[in-house]
Design a protein around this nucleic acid. Structure first.
Ligand code: ZN
Ligand code: ZN
Ligand code: ZN
Ligand code: ZN
Lengths: 137, 137
DNA sequence: CTCAGAATGATAATCGTTGTCAACTCGGTG
DNA sequence: CACCGAGTTGACAACGATTATCATTCTGAG
């Protein structure tokens, strides 16, 4: 059958968003990513950046989380369920896994009769580099 | 010194916000709380509701978390660090504690050289009542 | 080439939240 | 009691992130 239901080849803009995401190791907001694309000479509309990010998030290709002030930030992550350890100063991000936490959340939820359980878990701190740098000021 | 640094007696509006929070067992948005105050006959400005909630959050008297779409929701909780098990259908909320999770997050952060560590952890699911009710439809 | 459908992007609209500032409250003072 | 000043209030404007709109552009099959 002609094309089949397989995912369509990504457009130049979608590819640009995917690329910029792949290059940055830390979580970044849609607007920040859009700015970087602009600087890099790519012409991509802000709305398209939002759409691409949303699609990739739906497809599980990027992780999304919300900053304290409600802004959504995105990051290209390894596939599979995991959590993040984020430096609240420089944004350095480490993916972490905790099988014990997974079982604990499921058990707690089950004890209270909850089903279809998911969870969010993020760890914030100050990384060694930032702790050293900020000690003087 | 006249009054001293002790906390001032709460105003009628601040008390009203505290009361409405104490009455609802689930997380609610600032606007929803404002609406309920209006229905209850209390005249409190929306800005004041936001201010009162922010003050109570800073004082650790209420927990704040963000819904998937970035809206801040508030709940009067027991003092002390804990997490939440929330029904994503009806909003029923259970406070849960997990000492093992606390030590795990601290240990993981320390292994990566992070200090001054905090974390967020919320569990979402469908409670027994909602699972029963929704099975037919 | 031609056309239908999908994608794009400039812009307007939405919506939660915060800032502004004049009016108000309230306890102390003379 | 009249007055003062610090803190609070609330109507409204301003803000910023996100989403909706819709005319234009792109794409790829026939
Ligand atoms: Zn850092
Ligand atoms: Zn997990
Ligand atoms: Zn429920
Ligand atoms: Zn905890």
């Amino acid at each position: 059958m002609t094309t089949g239901r397989a995912s369509r080849r990504p457009t130049r803009q979608q590819q640009a968003v995917a690329d910029i995401l792949g290059q940055s190791a830390d979580f970044a907001s849609a607007q920040a990513l859009h700015g970087r694309l602009r600087e890099a000479g790519e012409t991509v509309g802000l709305a398209t950046v939002y759409r691409a990010l949303q699609a990739m998030a739906d497809a599980g290709q990027v992780d999304v989380l919300r900053t304290d002030d409600g802004e959504a930030v995105y990051r290209a992550c390894e596939p599979g369920h995991h959590h993040h350890l984020v430096c609240r100063t420089c944004g350095r991000t480490v993916e972490v896994e905790g099988p014990a936490v997974e079982t604990w959340t499921d058990r707690v939820a089950a004890e209270h009769g909850f089903i279809d359980v998911t969870h969010t878990l993020e760890i914030f701190g100050t990384c060694a580099d930032c702790a050293r740098g900020a000690s003087a000021s």
